[in-house]
Amino acid sequence: MNTRRGIPLLVKFVAVLVGVYVGVRLVRPPLPSSLVMMYMTLTVCGVLVYVSIYAETWQEFSAPLVELFRGSPERGGLWQGGRQVVLGLIPLLLGFGVYQKVTPSFTPPAEQRVVHPAPPFEVMGLTNPLQQRPDRLQEHLELGARVYFQNCVYCHGDRFDGEGHFAHGFNPPPANFVDAGTIAQLQESYVFWRVSTGGPGLPAESTPWNSAMPKWDTMLNEEERWAVVLYLYHQTGWKPRTWE
C-alpha cells in the first residue's frame, strides 16, 4: 500500500473506537455494561486485525506508539514534556483502576419482595356482597368515597396513583391503583383481603415488616371495606378479575 496522506492511522483507530462507543451508548433503552464491553472488545479486535493485516499499515499504525515509548531526540520541547506526562500517567491510571476495584462498595442488600403473594385459601372464593345490590350502587359508592378520602387518600392519593402527600415517607411506595399491574390484575376478594389484613397480614416473602398498609379490619367494618373496594374499581375504571 502506498503511504496515505491525511489523517494518521492511529487517529482513525481512536476515532473508530470512540465512534462505536458513542453509538452503542446512544441505543435506547441503554444496553447493559457487559454487552457494551463485549462490543468494544470486538471492535478493538476487528480494527487491530485491519491494521496488522499488511506490514505497511502495521508500520504506519505502530510507528507513533513506538516513537512515544522510545523517545525521539529530534522532537521539540513540547513533545518531550508531553511524552513524560503520558508515560507517568499510564501507571497512575492503572493504579487508580485497581483502587476502584478493591475499595469495598457498600450497597444495601437487595429487597426480594413478592408484590402479589398468594392469598390464604379462605379469602379466594369471596364475592363482593355489594355487587348483589345494583339498586344501591350510588349509596355504596358514596360510602366507599367517604372511606377512601378519610383513610386512604394520604398515601394512595387523590389521583389513585399512589402519590398521596404521605407517600414519599414510605418504602415500599403505596400501591398505584391506576397502574395496570395492581387491582386490574386482581380479584375483588384479593383486594378485600389486602385491605382487611394490611401489611401485618402479608406472608414473610412480602416483607410485612416494611409495609405501612394498616390492618383495616380493626378500624373499618366489613361493609366499609367492601365499599372502598367497589369505589376503587369504579373510580379507576378497571374491572376486577373473575374466575375464568
Binding site: I90, P91, L92, L94, G95, F96, G97, V98, Y99, K101, V102, T103, P104
Partner: peptide, 12 residues
C-alpha cells in the same frame, strides 16, 4: 485497599 493500587503502579 492501599497496597494493591501501589503494587499496580510499581508493576506497570
Amino acid at each position: 485497599t492501599y497496597v494493591y493500587p501501589a503494587l499496580a503502579v510499581v508493576i506497570a
